Amino acid sequence: MQNKNKTVVKSMKLLDLFRTNWKLSLNEIVELSGIPKTSVHRMLGSLEDMGLLHKDHEGKYTLGMLFLEFGQLVADRLDMRQLAYPMMKELRDEIGEAVNLTMIDNMEAIYIEKLDTLHPVRLYTKVGRRSPLYAGACSRIILAHLPESEIETYLKETELKPIGIGTITDKQKLRTVLQQSKLDGYTISYSELEDHTSSVAAPIFDYTNKVVGGLSIAGPDVRFPKEHVPHIIEKVKRTAAEISQKLGYSNQK
């Protein structure tokens, strides 16, 4: 903390509350943040002046429109997202299920692009959603391709909490799954992030041969019968490989 500006850190703590809360009053922000009310009031005023927060007629705060501008700038500058989009659309149109693209950020997976299924019943994964690396195919495939030392450090420091009915919470079982996923070049999850869902994912590599993301097809488990899974695996792996090639990856290096 000694090298960080405390006011900036506290301001970010306030903004972080809006990840999971759409609208908050001053008192709610004080209660959730644990920061003194006078300090919160002062910081909220500054954040509002800068356009980072907006206060409505009820005196409640929401994220300001400046975040929309910044968010679009970040999205536009993610080369992987731009390169992957046409191939993701082709994959979605061919298989008919939702296609998700994740990248690793601070030892979490963050969804940076998605294309919804063509079916009326769908999963509502949002761009910007984060998930732990141990849960869900599109997250776990990244973890599987990290260096062994990083995997072990992650497993030692991370509590495997159940999220869905199929979340892997046993570390030895997870190690086995990770090893097999790396050998196979894909992984499958069943009800790990949401109950009664299935997902197939393959890794994406950059020009340094480093894993940078994951590509998945996901949907309700009733639409993933066993006889169709091999075809889905083939298509996901093929598309992830094409994206990796566009990013400069070559398995000959």
Rank of each mutant, 00 (worst) to 15 (best):
Q2E: 09
N3E: 13
K6V: 05
K10W: 11
K10D: 15
K10P: 10
S11G: 12
M12A: 11
K13Y: 04
D16E: 14
D16R: 15
L17F: 06
N21A: 14
L26H: 07
L26Q: 10
E28Q: 14
V30P: 00
P36D: 02
P36Q: 07
K37A: 13
K37H: 12
S39R: 04
V40A: 07
M43T: 13
E48K: 14
G51K: 12
L53G: 08
D56K: 12
E58N: 15
K60M: 15
K60G: 00
Y61F: 15
T62Y: 14
G64N: 11
G64Y: 08
F67W: 14
F70R: 15
L73P: 00
R77K: 14
L78T: 02
R81H: 05
L83N: 06
L83D: 05
A84I: 08
A84D: 10
Y85T: 09
Y85I: 14
P86G: 07
M88V: 10
M88H: 01
L91E: 01
L91C: 09
L91T: 03
L91Q: 00
R92S: 01
I95W: 07
I95C: 07
A98Y: 10
V99P: 09
V99M: 00
N100R: 11
L101P: 06
L101D: 06
L101G: 08
M103T: 11
I104H: 07
D105H: 11
E108P: 06
A109E: 00
A109N: 07
A109H: 02
E113W: 07
K114T: 08
D116R: 14
L118Q: 00
H119W: 10
R122A: 13
R122H: 13
V127N: 12
V127H: 02
G128M: 03
G128I: 04
R130S: 14
R130D: 15
A135N: 00
A135Q: 06
G136Q: 02
G136A: 11
A137K: 06
C138H: 12
C138L: 12
R140G: 13
R140L: 12
I141N: 10
I142P: 06
L143E: 03
H145D: 07
L146Y: 04
L146I: 02
P147V: 12
E152H: 12
Y154E: 07
L155I: 03
P162Y: 02
G164R: 04
G164T: 01
T167C: 03
T167K: 01
T169D: 06
D170P: 08
Q172S: 15
L174H: 04
V177P: 05
V177C: 08
S181L: 03
S181C: 03
L183F: 14
D184R: 09
G185C: 07
I188T: 00
S189H: 03
Y190P: 00
S191N: 04
E192I: 00
L193K: 05
E194S: 02
D195K: 03
T197H: 02
S198G: 14
S199N: 04
S199F: 01
V200C: 02
P203K: 04
I204K: 07
I204E: 08
I204Y: 05
I204V: 12
Y207R: 14
T208P: 01
K210T: 04
V211L: 05
V212I: 13
G213P: 02
S216R: 00
S216A: 10
P220T: 09
F224G: 10
E234S: 02
E234Q: 15
E234A: 13
K235V: 09
K235W: 05
K237R: 12
R238I: 05
L247Y: 05
L247P: 00
